[in-house]
Amino acid sequence: MALAKRIIPCLDVRDGRVVKGRRFTDLVDAGDPSQLARRYSDEGADELVFLDITASLEKRKILVKVVRSVAAEIDIPFTVGGGIRSQEDAEIVLHNGADKVSINTAAVENPKLVQRLSEIYGSQCIVVAIDAKKDSSKPSGYHVYTHSGTKPSGLDALEWARKVDRLGAGEILLTSIDMDGTKDGYDIELTRTIASSVSIPVIASGGAGTPEHIYRVLAEGGADAALAASIFHFNEYPIQTVKNFLRERGVLVRS
C-alpha cells in the first residue's frame, strides 16, 4: 500500500481571523485564513483543518466568507469543523468549498446525522471528531467528551469509533484531551486502540511537540495522519523538517 502519511496543520479561526494560542486562552491574531492556508500549502502541508471557534450570532455568515476565501486560494484539501450542529451547518460548509466537514458534539447527540450526511455527500466528506480522555471505568480505557472536551458523554471511545465507522463516517479525527496542549507527545495507546479497530482512516491529534512525536504516532500508533497546531504556527518545526525526519525513518510521505 503506497498511500502517504499525511501531515495536517490545524488552524483555529475566530471572527474570520486565524488565532494562535493554547486551548482557547491567550489568543493572538495570526492573520488571514486564506493567506495562512496558502503558506502552509506552499510549505508542503498535505491537508488543512480549520476549527471555527467563533461564538457570535454572525457565525454562519463569517464561516461562509472564510470557507469561500480559502477554497479560492488553495489546491490541497481542507476540512472545516467547530460548532457544526446540524445538517444545515454542514451544508453551508460543503456548499461553499470545503472538502470535508468535521462534526463532534452533534454526532454524539444525533448519530443519524452522520448517516444522513454520508448518504447525501458521500462518506469521503464526513469526518467525525472524537475527543477522548483516559477513564479506567470504560472498557477501552477512554471516555468520549463533547462540547470542546468539557462534558462526559458516557460513551466508550472504541465503541463510539466503531459505531461512526458503521454509520458512514469517512474518517476519524481523534484528539486526546489529556495530551492536547501539552506538547509532550500524542496518546499512542489511544491512537493504536482506535486505528487498529476501524476500517476508516484515523487522524491523530493532541500533544505534538516534536517531529519524534509525529513519527511515533504514525509508526507505533498506526495513525494515517498527524494533526498539529503550535509546532507549525510558531515555526518551531517547518513542515519540510518534519517530513524529512519521517522520510529518514522510512515513513512514506509526499515530497
Binding site: K5, D46, S123, Q124, G170, E171, I200, D224
Partner: peptide, 13 residues
C-alpha cells in the same frame, strides 16, 4: 478491496 482502508483518503502516486 476490504484489505485496505476505505475510502482511500490521501496522497498516492
Amino acid at each position: 478491496p476490504p484489505t485496505v482502508k476505505r475510502p482511500q483518503m490521501g496522497w498516492n502516486r
